[in-house]
Design a binder for these strands. Structure first.
Length: 905
RNA sequence: GCCCGGGUGGCGAAAUUGGUAGACGCAAGGGACUUAAAAUCCCUCGGCCGUGAGGCCAUGCGGGUUCGAUUCCCGCCCCGGGCACCA
């Protein structure tokens, strides 16, 4: 065996071996448990970045771990190949987006292969290929038939100079990124997917996803945003009369309403502006600026009176009608009722424009007028100053108001959703063509199935002034499928989220003649999905929706696409800059900077390597092109090898946490692999791994240590906490290296190394593959049996926690022990005190535990007031929902008073 | 603005999520080997006080619950992710 660790040759040999043996090619096999591990597929942006390396290493470790536990494991890879960056690159380099994209895919595929991921490359797909996107088109047509796809107008950002639609990303401070022109809102016809038809199910099924992080489920819940409220009609005489509808979740405050506000696009606003130039100007002003929610929510709240009034449906009062920029046409009815006494925004708006503020109509905050504003005014309470509703609590009040409105035909209870239908039309070239044809005679006509796919020409080069398809006659001109007359193709393409909403289905049967076939039933749902937290809402929600749609079309049996979800943190790096002459920061790559440290290693100054002059140290930020702080993995892989890159990526931080890139740490990971190599090279391959009967005390102690470390590593593997797994491997090597030459040492080294290699193999597959064969442990470590600790525990068993209850003494034991402290305080049946009920806990503990104590939120008293009685535990309402049951523990510590210390009992 | 996270030594982090804070690694300092350097190996390494044994202070800040809080509760501050056309 070579004495020096040479990653390049070891890795090339291992990868060749895997290729030649088709090690990672998989097929459906009913005899074995399947495991489908999926990483979010990359956008082919040019080169891999550290985020990719981390993402794919995490899933690869999971893949190899699951495989060693005997499962039939699938890990595919593909390319999210449509999108805006290709068009931008095309504009800069005058290259068609297709050329740029395919070149990037080729380069990045090579990079992925050099990292040794256990990918079944025979399933590779790219969403920009017609044999993939034809099924986007096919499903679009099915949904059109079902009415889930429909057409209506939507608002977009319009650059008046370039005469083009801008993405939100292309709007900077309300201006177009290329032209600098103030952006305008524009209404254009678009296709929508009625995701709201699935809102109820998308919400309810979140509870069936225990393998998802709680935070992601919460975010989706809030995004879907189910709210119960009341639709209220305000009759008016405008334009010959009618009813203005608003939606409110606070119908209990209806009697406190003092004005009504509508969005600038609302028909009543438009109508009121007809002979009111000032109002027309205001509505025009509201058309400026971008469409993003963040921008709308942070802009100054402005409004203008229409001079018109509407009638309060219950009191008959005339209320002024206002136009306000904070009312959004897309939500609810595009109109709101305002209750300044009980809504902070209404309160501020009323103040600003001198609108009337009625006295409070709820008891939530005693005061008669809400001056100054306090948060308590927004809370629920009992109705006052509300005529017949006085004395009613929230729910009763809403019911009573809704009933009264219903009898007047001016309202009813209603559920609304924050979730909006998904607009999928994009006025862009590099995407899936929407399979529609516009005929003068027949209108918009769907392309018949047999004419699919509508192929996107790949030779266009966008120039920034709109979709080049509009100038491309070969694509545009066609005949109407209905009447055969002259027609024009739809040039809008689909949102790229459509592509990524079902690619995981296609991986299971990439060559299917239909959208998917029976193989999908074997593999789906995905057992483990791994990807960035930034996709927590949109991509994951659209994929869930799409899966349910496919299920309802009879294409799949899966209700949900992803069983378990791991959201990985971002990769961040320090930033360095100099102020340029134009006052802009010029970002300098960390690789070009020399950082000086003080005697404790703290950074004190930094200089540019090229000229030795100082540069300013910026913050630690997400690796990005704009801050020029990206670390290219390529040089790292070339210098240290893929295994080092993988070990460091796993060791530096737990998968879900953000990771700061630091080259010094890489050195440490590499050193570990070198030490492993050196240790293995010296080891005695003739020894067996069974400890002899006369093994020395030192060897026995080391063995215990090794198996304790192993047990912890098995637990951590089960939790996908790979940083501590690597740490355990380092500990194992430390223990083995320090082992002397006592009886049994050679045998323990043999055993320990076999454990270490197998534990490490998912993280560093190449070097462990080599050593495993070289040292004669077996043929192929990827299918080696997963190690078990001395007690014969597999990882699943190790995950089970010991029952703490068993360790606590019962009353009889306490009495038998006769500890004085127990006698002094007396004993009483009860819970251990904090949050567990006596029934579920049932432990017997010193009385001091169940004395009445104040809830930690200090709101109410909780717990029994007498230690002698069986306690009835009551919590304050706020805590009851939040507090999880906890058990008290006894453990001998020096600081613990005697009466709590088990060793004194 | 709204929703969701995070904050522990000089640095990345660990703590079996209520029971000895800082495992493992990096950086730094000291030493061994070497003509020298690199590599490798050994020792020290949160702060303050103390010769020492040891003591005190420390998990963003301020409170609270508890015998005991990095962990639970309340209120701040700061950082990050998402906000529907970046992917």
């Amino acid at each position: 065996m070579q004495e020096q660790y040479d990653p390049a040759s070891v890795e090339a040999a291992a990868q060749t071996y895997w290729d030649e043996h088709d090690t990672f090619k998989v097929r459906e096999d009913d005899a074995r448990e399947k495991f489908y591990c999926l990483s979010m597929f990359p956008y082919p942006s040019g080169r891999l970045h550290m985020g990719h390396v981390r993402n794919y290493t995490i899933s690869d470790v999971i893949v190899r771990y699951q495989r060693m536990t005997g499962k039939n494991v699938l890990q595919p890879m593909g390319w999210d190949a449509f999108g805006l960056p290709a068009e931008n690159a095309a504009m800069n380099n005058s290259v068609p987006p297709a050329t740029w994209t395919y070149d990037n895919i080729d380069y990045m595929r090579g990079q992925l292969k050099s990292l040794g991921f256990a990918i079944d490359w025979s399933r590779e797909l790219a969403t920009c290929k017609p044999d993939y996107y034809r099924w986007n088109q096919w499903l679009f047509l099915r949904l059109l038939e079902k009415g889930i796809v429909y057409q209506r107008t939507g608002t977009v950002n319009w650059d008046p100079v370039d005469q083009t639609v801008l993405a939100n990303e292309q709007v900077i401070d309300g201006r177009g990124w290329r032209t600098g022109a103030p952006v305008e809102k524009r209404e254009i016809p678009m296709y929508y997917m009625a995701i709201t038809q699935y809102a109820e199910e998308l919400l309810a099924d979140l509870d069936d996803l225990p393998g998802w992080p709680e935070q992601v489920r919460t975010m989706q819940k809030n995004w879907i945003g189910k709210s119960h409220g009341v639709r209220v009609g305000f009759p008016h005489a405008i334009d010959g009369g009618g009813t203005l509808w608003v939606f409110t979740t606070r119908a209990d405050t209806l009697m406190g309403a003092t004005y009504v506000a509508v969005a600038a696009e609302h028909p009543l606003a438009v109508s009121a502006a007809k002979d009111n130039p000032e109002l027309a100007a205001f509505i025009e002003e509201c058309q400026h600026g971008g469409t993003s929610e963040a921008e709308l929510a942070t802009q100054e709240k402005k409004g203008m009176a229409t001079g018109l009034t509407v009638t309060h449906p219950l009191s008959g009062e005339e209320l002024p009608l206002w136009v306000a920029n904070y009312v959004l046409m897309g939500y609810g009815e595009g109109a709101v009722m305002a209750v300044p006494a009980h809504d902070e925004r209404d309160f501020a708006f009323a103040h600003k424009y001198g609108l009337p503020i009625k006295p409070v109509v709820l008891t939530s905050a005693g005061n008669a007028t809400p001056e100054p504003w306090q948060e308590a005014y927004a809370e629920h309470g009992m109705c006052i100053n509300s005529g017949k509703y006085d004395g009613l609590e929230f729910e009763a009040a809403v019911d009573a108001v809704a009933t009264d409105l219903a009898t007047k035909q001016l309202g009813e209870k209603k559920i609304t959703w924050r979730l909006r239908d998904w607009g999928i039309s994009r006025q862009r070239y590099w995407g899936t063509p929407i399979p529609m044809v516009r005929c003068e005679a027949c209108g918009d006509v769907p392309v018949p199935d047999e004419q699919l796919p509508v192929v996107l020409p790949e030779e266009c080069v966008p120039d920034g002034s709109g979709n080049p398809l509009n100038k491309y006659d070969a694509f545009l001109n066609c005949s109407c499928p209905k009447c055969g007359g002259v027609a024009r193709r739809e040039t809008d393409t689909m949102d790229t989220f459509v592509d990524s909403s079902w690619y995981f289905f296609r991986y299971t049967c990439p060559d299917a003649g239909a959208m998917i076939d029976a193989r999908a039933d074997y593999w789906m749902p995905v057992d483990q999905y791994v990807g960035g937290i930034e996709h927590a809402i949109l991509h994951l929600l659209y994929s869930r929706f799409w899966t349910k749609v496919m299920r309802d079309l009879g294409l799949t049996k899966a209700d949900e696409p992803f069983h378990n979800l791991l959201t990985q943190g971002m990769v961040v790096a320090p930033t360095f800059f100099r102020m340029g002459e134009d006052g802009r920061k010029q970002w300098i790559n960390p690789a070009d900077v020399q950082v000086a440290t003080d005697d404790k290693g703290r950074p004190v100054s930094s200089t540019l390597k090229a000229d030795g002059q100082p540069v300013t140290i910026g913050g630690i930020e997400k690796m990005s092109k704009s801050k020029n702080n990206g670390v290219d993995p390529q040089s790292l892989i070339e210098h240290y090898g893929a295994d080092t890159a993988r070990v460091f990526a796993m060791f530096a931080a737990p998968p879900e946490q953000s990771l700061e890139w630091n080259d010094a740490g890489v050195e440490g990971a590499h050193r570990f692999l070198k030490r492993l190599w050196a240790f293995a090279a010296e080891s005695d391959t003739s020894a067996d791994s069974v400890l002899p009967a006369d093994a020395s005390t030192e060897v026995r102690a080391a063995r215990r240590e090794i198996h304790e470390t192993l047990r912890q590593a098995l637990v951590d593997f089960g939790k996908y906490q790979f940083n501590t797994v690597v740490s355990a491997c380092m500990k194992l090597l430390n223990t083995l290296s320090r082992l002397g030459e006592g009886a049994g040492a050679a045998q323990l080294r043999r055993e320990g190394l076999s454990i270490l290699l197998r534990l490490l193999s998912p993280v560093a597959p190449h070097v462990t593959h080599h050593l495993w064969c070289e040292l004669g442990y077996g043929d192929d470590i990827v299918d080696a049996a997963w190690p078990e600790d001395a007690a014969g525990q597999s990882s699943a068993a190790a995950l089970r926690r010991p029952d703490r209850r068993a360790r606590l003494p019962c009353r009889r034991e306490l009495r038998a022990a006769g500890a004085s402290c127990i006698r002094q305080s007396g004993l009483s049946r009860g819970g251990c005190g904090r949050f567990s009920s006596p029934a579920s806990c049932g432990r017997l503990l010193p009385a001091v535990f169940i004395c009445a104590v104040r809830c930690s939120c200090r709101r109410r008293w909780r717990g029994p007031t007498s230690a002698a009685r069986r306690p009835t535990i009551r919590w304050c309402a706020r805590c009851a929902a939040r507090c999880k049951p906890t058990a008290c523990r006894s453990s001998p510590t020096r600081a613990m008073p005697l009466r709590y210390c088990r060793s004194n009992l």
